[in-house]
Structures are given as C-alpha cells and as structure tokens.
C-alpha cells in the first residue's frame, strides 16, 4: 500500500456557540477507505467541511495529498470531491449536462470529460435516464448523479458525508461497489456514516470522533480489542467507546 498521506489534519479547531472541533488530529493514508464515526453533533461533518474548503478553521492545519489546503485551497480542491447527504444537483439539467458542467468547473478537457461521463453514467446504471432532467429523479438516482459528479474529475480524495442515507438496497449496493472499485484503483475515500454495518464491512480503518476529538482509531479488530466489554459488532464497540468517552468527559468536568 502507498504510505503517502491523502489527508493530514493537525490541531484542528472550530468553535461556533461551543467547540465543534476541538484540537483534532487525523491521518488518512493514500488509497485507504476510512470511515469516520461519531454520535450526532460530534464534529464529523464540520471536520469534513473544513477539509473540502466549505468552512474556515479557527486553528490547525489541513494537508490534502501534500497540498496545504489553507495556503493553497484551489490546488487542494482540485484533488478533492465532496458528496453530501443532500445531493448537490440541478433539477433542470440532465445527468450528462451536469457532468459536463462539473468537468468544466474542474477544468477537465471536454473530450476526456465526455468519455468519462458516458462511462460513469453506464457504470452507475443511469444510462436510461441520461437525457432526462434530474428534477424527476428519486433520492437514489440523485445520489448516483452526485457520485458521478464526484468521480468525473478523477479526484485523489473523495469525501462522502452520509452517502447511503435514504438509498434503497439496490442503489446502496451499487454505490458501495463503485466506491470499493475506486479504492482498488488507488483513490482515497473518507466516509461518515451512521450505518455501522457499512463501516464495519467496507472501511479498512475506522476513526471515532466525540466532542470534536478523535477518541479511538484503528481497524475493526483493533477497536474491538480496545473495548472494555465482550463485544462482537462495531455497533457495540462504538457505543462502548462513545459511552466511556462521555463518562471521562463528565469526570473531567466534575473534577
């Protein structure tokens, strides 16, 4: 495996009314499938939004595939694709027009972009609807169009925030297959999800974030060994880690 880092975060802080991300350190290797887990409000989305350039951190550094994202954000953005749980698509454009627009935004040569788009549309099962406007699409189809948009400029790092929310079994399977295939080709994927079974099956490494800090990290096996209880599923491991993290927080607050 390539040991270069796709993402390196050091001492990242962001405060809104209260600290959302509180001195986070995170390293994700190139070509890795990394799942970022955490309870609601733990700071997962805020962290990833800062990586994607959608939020400015108060403190800390972010390096994307060797580029300092805070110093040269445009170069960092060139290497990253961001897919949120709410697909960012235009209702009045067809999937192919949408991909043409994204190719233009990322400066992909039109002929290359067209060839990739046609391939992606076929790969994601969107071919029968490629010339229909996205307005009438289901959630699953919209998510697939957004995913095609993330792949058309061949990013080195793909960040997915809850990509499987609201997808039916067939669409979820298709999206998972595409993601795994991209990882095999060397792309790095960072994904947040509340579907722990997906993280358990797909991710090579899992990070657990609570109160804006990374409280546990490792492969599923490593996390299971760390757990204080006799556990067999990631759900049990996750709940144990989060609960013990909260207990520690209460103790420190009481002290």
């Amino acid at each position: 495996m390539n040991t270069a880092l796709a993402l390196e975060i050091s001492g990242l802080r962001k405060t809104f009314d209260r600290p959302a991300v509180d001195g986070l350190n995170l390293r994700v290797k190139a070509g890795e499938f990394y799942a970022l887990l955490g309870p609601n409000g733990a700071g997962k989305t805020t962290t990833l939004r800062m990586v994607a350039g959608l939020l400015q951190p108060d403190e800390g550094s972010i390096s994307v595939c060797g580029t300092n994202a805070l110093v040269d954000p445009l170069d960092a953005k060139r290497k990253v694709a961001w897919v949120s749980d709410e697909p960012m698509i235009y209702e009045k454009l067809t999937p192919l027009e949408y991909l043409e627009f994204i190719s233009g935004l990322w400066g992909v040569e039109p002929s290359v972009g067209e060839a990739r788009s046609l391939e992606l549309v076929k790969w994601l099962g969107l071919a029968p609807h490629a010339m229909e406007r996205c307005g009438g699409f289901s959630k699953g189809m919209r998510q697939k169009v957004a995913l095609a948009g993330a792949l058309v400029h061949e990013p080195e790092l793909i960040i997915l925030d809850e990509p499987l929310t609201g997808l039916d079994a067939g669409s979820a399977r298709q999206v998972k297959d595409v993601l795994l295939s991209k990882v095999r080709q060397g792309t790095t994927i960072i994904m947040t999800t509340h579907i722990l079974e997906v993280a358990e099956r797909m991710a090579e490494r899992i990070g657990v974030i609570a109160d804006g800090r990374l409280v546990a990290e490792g492969t599923f096996e490593e996390l299971r060994q760390r757990s204080t209880k006799e556990t067999s599923t990631l759900e049990e491991v996750f709940l144990d880690i989060v609960e013990s993290g909260q207990d520690a927080l209460f103790e420190s607050l009481a002290a």
């Binding site: 994607a52 445009l74 170069d75 953005k77 961001w82 960012m88 698509i89 935004l105």
Partner: peptide
C-alpha cells in the same frame, strides 16, 4: 444557486 456547496468545493476562486 441550487448547488452552492458544489460550486464552493470546485477549484475556482
């Protein structure tokens, strides 16, 4: 803009 985040994550100033 219906896809603010898409545009903001693009490599354009």
């Amino acid at each position: 803009e219906d896809a603010h985040e898409l545009i903001d994550t693009g490599p354009i100033s």
